[in-house]
Design a protein around this nucleic acid. Structure first.
Length: 690
DNA sequence: GAATCAGCAGTTTTT
DNA sequence: CTGCTGATTC
């Protein structure tokens, strides 16, 4: 299984946790000690579920199971990495032999191993969403089904949905332009993906499922693992469940851990039902409920319980804590968004004055739009912050450019990557020439790359474009030959050479943008070289390093891990899942923001929005503020706002104090000290200005 | 082949 | 109010 190329993880070595079962509560111990057969662990927020998984794996190894026959499945590479580390600190070297993977990486492993059976040639590539979009856009241009400005994303959605449901053609339910366009483009999408030797994210699951249907292949994989553990099971899709069933074989030694109340990705195909009917899928399953919370204080948990209880379909459980009630939670009404941001900023100032660290504080919101005003005010108040969920490293334009070159070198039939780089830097191959090349490729069944190879045979192509094509093909071929049989250690050198060869840094420097932006881009390009180096260091055994490096880049959303210490964290409620902070602000607790307008309009099921609220509340360890505005400027216009219905669902009584920003409660924590603090701050600001 | 402009849409996003 | 896309222009 492929290693994740994370930033060099220099975090302090974790203290070695002894495998002492007495540190577990009875329920946790039950889950850890459970013998064979399926088990569902319903783990409420903050109930120590990761610990249970780690300890269970350690216990299995301790009882003689070979580590390499244990499979742990997570949803993110980050989670897999963290689990690997904790495991290593618990059981030592054996821990690294455990197979830890995401469903998608697992699918990729299967497709790589069984590519012949899957009908893929050895060098296939993975298309991510933006590659898929490019393909759909290209198809829209080519087939003028509806040359009006249709949103390629919507068409893609329909195509992908059809593909996931394994339908032969797009169902026409509404007969609108999107459906008709998708209907027209669907077969072409499939055809082109095949011609390009490309698979998309869904294919990693769907096509590996196809392969596993072949009896001897399925059997081989079903016998690979003795025990399977799945984290965040509430987020599994029906395909993932199906895959799990095959891998589990008849032994059904499957342990899934999840929380139906934290299922917030149904819109992305997660099936909450998977958790509610796990027993039916796997036969009589043991069920363990972890509801003792080790994270938050009482009032916060009461609030969370109180809100989530309003969801009708759920596994009944109630979080409780052995610790005290703690501070009440604050529900604050503000005038408008700016005042809300100011309130948050000032309160953070007080918290820090009282000794809290910036990194202990998080601001959560429903939609990324909300971050802007917060940023402005925090910056003005000189409060350091960092935002989670910016553009992922491998999605940045200049990084994609490099990766597209590598993808083309690896698989020249990958036309999306090919088109991206063929005229970068400029080689005199404009849209018209490209069009002619493409037409020739189609007519002679040799693809765009084949056409570029035979540039001189094609009429109506200007000499300059012919030369450009020859030069380009020469470059691709030369690197292709170099990469052939290259060792992982060679990879970095080749990538460096490539970047020089295509004069990427010059291209960036001569582009429009400001010096700082260009500088950043060049740093990103350099970072690709570093990433190649890290990849080589982590995968010294890779037989096709180029290919594996590209795969890694498609599967790993490697956020730039800037140093978040000393900074307040801003992020969406979705990104906050799995994290915890001593102090949390949930801003924009308003109708049409927290139950989001789109969800309200779609009529009916607000349970996922409620879960989102629940996730937000349960991130807080000690202090929680929920803020709302009476007015908010929407798109240029001030709009009156209503309080989120979820605020009504909070408990009554001393655990929740509701107040208005204009009349804060008198017993405010350290008001006099805070005044002193702000006086000092104002003086400082005054000095800065003068 | 690059630059500028008008028009439009505007949740969430682990892979 | 923004940010992106496609079309138009030089």
């Amino acid at each position: 299984m492929m290693e994740v190329a994370g930033r060099s993880r220099k975090r302090p070595r974790r203290r070695k946790e002894p495998l002492d079962l007495h540190t577990l509560n009875p329920r946790q111990r039950e889950a850890v000690m459970h013998d064979d057969g399926p088990m569902l662990v319903l783990a409420g927020a903050g109930s120590g579920k990761t610990r249970v998984i780690i300890y269970r794996i350690a216990r299995l190894i301790g009882d003689g199971t070979s580590p390499s026959r244990i499979l742990g499945v997570t949803f993110t590479n980050k989670a897999a990495g963290e689990m690997r580390e904790r495991l290593r600190s618990l059981v030592g070297a054996d821990g690294s032999k455990v197979q830890l993977s995401t469903f998608h990486a697992l699918g990729l492993s299967i497709l790589k191993a069984e590519h012949e059976a899957a009908g893929l040639s050895k060098r296939f590539c993975i298309y991510d969403t933006s590659d898929q979009m490019s393909l759909v856009r290209e198809l829209m241009r080519r087939v003028r089904v509806a040359d009006r400005r249709l949103d390629a994303g919507k068409i893609l959605d329909i195509i992908l949905k059809t593909k996931r449901e394994r339908l032969k053609e797009v169902a026409i339910d509404w007969g609108d332009d999107y459906e008709l366009a998708a209907y027209e483009l669907y077969p072409r999408y499939v055809e082109e993906m095949k011609a390009f030797n490309a698979v998309d994210f869904d294919d990693l699951l769907l096509r590996s499922m196809d392969v596993l249907q072949i009896p001897e292949v399925g059997e081989r994989w079903a016998n690979k693992f003795d025990y399977i553990l799945v984290d965040e099971y509430q987020d599994t899709s029906s395909d993932q469940l199906a895959m799990l069933k095959i891998l589990a074989g008849d032994r059904k030694n499957v342990c899934v851990v999840g929380d139906d109340d934290q299922s917030i990705y149904a819109w992305r195909g997660a099936v909450v039902d998977n958790i509610l009917r796990f027993g039916r899928e796997f036969g009589s399953a043991k069920e363990v409920i972890l509801d003792q919370n080790y994270r938050s204080t009482g009032h916060i948990l009461h609030a969370a319980n109180s809100v989530i209880q309003n969801n009708k379909v759920r596994k009944d459980k109630k979080l409780w804590s052995a610790d005290g009630e703690g501070d009440p939670i604050n529900v604050v009404t503000c005038e408008d968004g700016e005042e809300e941001a100011t309130l948050v900023s000032e309160t953070i100032g007080k918290l820090v004055f009282d000794g809290m660290k910036y990194e202990d504080i998080a601001i959560l919101y429903r939609s990324n739009l909300q971050s802007r005003i917060l940023e402005e005010v925090l910056a003005a108040d000189k409060i350091p912050y960092s935002i989670v969920g910016g553009q992922a490293f491998f999605e940045r334009k200049e990084v994609r450019d490099v990766m597209a070159y590598l993808a083309t070198i690896n698989n020249p039939f990958d036309e999306i990557s090919l088109r991206r780089v063929v005229n970068m830097p400029s080689r005199g191959i404009g849209p018209t020439s490209l069009q002619r090349f493409a037409a020739f490729g189609t007519a002679n069944n040799c693809g765009l790359y084949g056409a570029l190879c035979r540039a001189s045979e094609i009429p109506d192509i200007p000499k300059s474009a012919q030369n450009g094509a020859a030069q380009f093909v020469g470059l691709i071929k030369s690197f292709g030959a170099q990469m052939e049989g290259a060792s992982p250690q060679d990879l970095q050198r080749h990538v460096e050479h490539l970047i020089d060869e295509i004069k990427l840094r010059d291209v960036i420097m001569s582009a429009d943008d400001s010096a700082t932006v260009s500088q950043r881009r060049i740093e990103n390009v350099n970072e690709v070289i570093n990433a190649a180096h890290r990849f080589a260091a982590m995968n010294p055994q890779s037989e096709s390093p180029l290919e594996d490096f590209i795969f890694m880049s498609s599967l790993v959303k490697d956020e730039e891990k800037e140093d978040d210490r000393g900074k307040v964290t801003l992020m969406t409620l979705h990104s906050a899942k799995g994290l915890e902070y001593p102090a949390v602000f949930m801003v924009g607790m308003e109708e049409e923001l927290l139950p989001h307008r789109r969800t309200i309009e779609l009529g009916g099921d607000l349970s996922e929005e409620r879960r989102l609220c629940y996730v937000g509340i349960t991130r807080a360890k000690k202090r929680l503020w929920m803020t709302k505005c009476l007015y908010r400027s929407n798109r240029g216009k001030m709009m009156e706002r209503g309080a989120s219905r979820f605020l009504e669902e909070l408990p009554e009584g001393e655990g929740v104090i509701r107040w208005n920003r204009n009349s804060p409660p008198t017993d405010d924590m350290t008001e006099s000290k805070a005044d002193e603090f702000f006086a000092k701050m104002r003086a400082q600001l005054g000095m800065d200005q003068g």
